[in-house]
């Protein structure tokens, strides 16, 4: 995997990528079918969707029904991708995803846009800090939180053909360039984006960028942080995490999510069972979201490079060497 990260942002926004990739997948695969709950405009699929009502199923503002219809389409032989905003793609439809989807073995992909603080001006009602926790409890669920556009494209392409429930949480705006175009990612296989020997930082989604900035700052102080992109929060790549923590002796999890039930908890399970070590989180405390620009919200909830660097030093100081 070639890393091309230099701190610059990808000029292509996720909305534009989704708006072109979803129609492309439909063109490439006759069994791919897309459903939305009155939010096609938000990911740039409306014009194509209106012209192709048999490939883009508009369900109206009825998310529970949308998930059920997606499950029925799966039973009929389709590969459905259902989109709505993150809170509605998780909290609101949890029982439908759980039962009509996972339990009944109807394989569907759910795309939940604007996770956590990326919901920004839509505010606390639209700001899921709990979606990963919910999906983690669903047997067979795979949870993706893409960290750049290359990964988003690859994940969206492969998820339609994977068994089980696939949940993709991603913002609609910009992400840094991290991976060489054409890179392929594997479920349950993390990527070590930056190698280091002093502290392991595992960061998903928008937090990978913050983690890499934190690593730059830590390097100025002579601290070599190892930064890992989990690719899938579930299943989590235990081997990569264990090998890294055995080397560094400590870990920081960075996630745009409540500290309860998400990536941090998943990592703590791995540490507790395999290689106990000091660990800390840069995540949302047990709080609700609120309205504001994303930059403000990252400060407000402590989701910045500075917070990661500070936490890294703290867990390093707790190491028993």
């Amino acid at each position: 995997m070639k890393i091309i990260y230099d701190g610059s942002m990808d000029p292509k926004q996720a909305k534009a990528l989704l708006g072109s990739l979803i129609p492309q997948l439909a063109a490439e695969d006759p069994d791919f079918i897309y459903l939305d709950a009155d939010l096609m405009s938000c990911i740039g699929t409306l014009k194509w969707g209106k012209a192709n009502p048999d490939r883009a199923i508009e369900c109206g503002i009825a998310e529970a029904n949308m998930i059920g219809v997606a499950c029925g389409l799966a039973a009929a032989g389709f590969k459905p991708l259902a989109h709505t905003f993150g809170p509605f793609a998780s909290r609101r439809v949890f029982d439908q995803v759980f039962l009509s989807g996972a339990y009944a073995k109807n394989d569907i992909t759910v795309l939940g846009t604007d996770p956590g603080v990326t919901a920004a001006l839509n505010g606390g009602t639209h700001m899921p800090f709990e979606d990963v926790a919910l999906y983690r409890t669903i047997p067979t669920a795979i949870i993706f939180e893409p960290t750049d556009m290359v990964q988003l494209e690859d994940v969206l392409r492969q998820s339609k053909d994977l068994p089980g429930i696939k949940y993709i949480r991603v913002g609609r705006k910009d992400l840094p360039k991290v991976y060489e175009p054409g890179s392929h990612f594997t479920v349950g296989k993390a990527v070590t984006v930056r190698e280091g020997k002093d502290c392991t930082i595992v960061a998903a989604g928008i937090m990978l960028h913050e983690a890499l900035k934190a690593a730059d700052e830590l390097a100025k102080e002579g601290i070599e942080a190892e930064v890992i992109d989990p690719v899938t929060i579930k299943p989590l790549d235990k081997e990569t995490v264990i090998a890294s923590v055995k080397k560094t002796g400590c870990l920081v999890a960075a996630e745009n999510h409540n500290k309860n039930g998400g990536l941090y908890d998943a990592l703590l399970e791995v540490l507790a069972e395999n290689c106990p070590a000091p660990a800390g989180q840069v995540a949302v405390e047990d709080e609700f979201g609120e309205v504001g620009p994303q930059k403000y919200l990252q400060e407000r909830f402590g989701l910045t490079a500075a917070h990661i660097a500070e936490k890294a030093k703290k867990v390093m100081a707790s190491r028993i060497l």
């Binding site: 059920g68 219809v69 997606a70 499950c71 029925g72 039973a75 009929a76 389709f78 009509s100």
Partner: peptide, 22 residues
């Protein structure tokens, strides 16, 4: 179809009927 959480079979049936038509 698997059912039991009341109401859910209705949507899934719609998806099955739509899928067969498509």
């Amino acid at each position: 179809m698997t059912t039991g959480s009341l109401g859910q079979g209705t949507s899934v049936a719609c998806g099955m009927a739509l899928g067969d038509r498509l």
